[in-house]
């Protein structure tokens, strides 16, 4: 057992090392995750401490331009916050929301999809129509509704602290049907195959057949969706801040920083738009490139010679 694990590990490492793209994107992602989660230690300023922010410092350009300030390497935003620190903190928020929301979506969606596809019949129809109902209420309506519920439950003041879990729930809740429909379709194709019949004949429980036998064979589209969906979840949060339902302005995510950049696109203060945009592109690019490689590696149907 130990030896097999060792082999697998070494093969994993071997094929990883052979692929510069995978290595590069992994390195990139690792650095981004480390600096964003280490933001309280690394960042030169604390953007969450509003008493250190001074409006008179606003819209300072990056260090290498005229009229810059030595305190602010990448310049400041419209409030006088240090861009670099705000981006680091914001990236942490975005990563949390992206991964959290996708985990929730995947969990709900895979569960519903498996059950619907495997049980079929009325059960299937019911669950799929439920998915249609959910899809009809886009992220926006879900955000408005959960926001109202939240406020009734916790009051106005707690929003700043609880916005991240709230947004994870909103985005996770709004987009599970994507997974459900995809998994269901694959299950429909798989469940007539011989191996499922065989598993049934030897008396395995439906739960075991679904999780251990059918699910692994439906993973290709699920994995594709997942890597892209992380980006989508981060985008959904940005889109919510576009209409004013995202992270609180005093706790910006990368997405809400980009929304702020949208306002400044014609203003000449280009760094407000550009830096968060570049950071987000790099983050999502490395997640996806790593995802592309990992998917190929994990897929049992591909020969890896």
């Amino acid at each position: 057992m130990q030896g097999w694990r060792g082999f697998r590990k070494s093969y994993f490492v071997y094929s990883f090392l052979r692929d510069p793209m995978a290595m590069g994107s992994f390195l990139c992602l690792a650095i981004l995750v480390m600096v964003s989660f280490g933001a309280p230690l690394i960042a030169p300023h604390d953007p969450y401490d509003s008493s250190t922010i001074d409006i008179m410092d606003s819209e300072m350009p990056p260090l290498w331009l005229d009229q810059s300030d030595a305190r602010f390497l990448l310049g400041t935003d419209s409030q006088g916050r240090d861009m670099l620190s705000t981006m680091l903190y914001g990236m942490r928020v975005s990563i949390l929301i992206g991964l959290g929301a996708v985990a929730l979506q995947a969990f709900m969606g895979i569960f519903v999809g498996l059950v619907a596809g495997y049980r079929g019949g009325r059960f299937d129809a019911f669950l799929m129509r439920l998915a249609d109902v959910q899809l009809s209420f886009s992220t926006y309506m879900v955000a408005i509704f959960f926001g109202a519920l939240f406020q009734a439950a916790f009051g106005m003041g707690r929003y700043e602290q609880l916005a991240v879990p709230l947004l994870v729930i909103i985005i996770g809740f709004a987009e599970w049907p994507q997974y459900a429909r995809t998994v269901r379709a694959s299950v429909l194709a798989e469940k007539k195959k011989e191996y499922v019949e065989a598993a049934r004949v030897i008396g395995l429980s439906p739960g075991r057949i679904m999780w251990r036998h059918i699910l692994p064979n439906t993973l290709t589209p699920v994995l594709v969706i997942s890597t892209v969906q992380v980006a989508n979840a981060i985008m959904s949060e940005a889109a919510l801040s576009f209409i004013g339902l995202g992270m609180p302005v005093t706790r910006p995510s990368l997405g809400s920083l980009i929304k702020a950049g949208f306002d400044y696109i014609f203003s000449g203060s280009w760094w407000i738009t550009l830096f968060p945009g570049v950071a987000l592109v790099v983050l999502i690019l490395s997640i996806n490139l790593l995802g592309d490689w990992l998917r190929d590696f994990l897929n049992p149907k591909l020969y890896k010679a």
Binding site: A231, I258, L285
Partner: peptide, 15 residues
């Protein structure tokens, strides 16, 4: 192509 296509999805559509 794979990389460039990701850029599209990493920038919010409004931007």
């Amino acid at each position: 192509f794979m990389g460039v296509s990701i850029v599209g999805v990493s920038i919010p559509v409004f931007l």
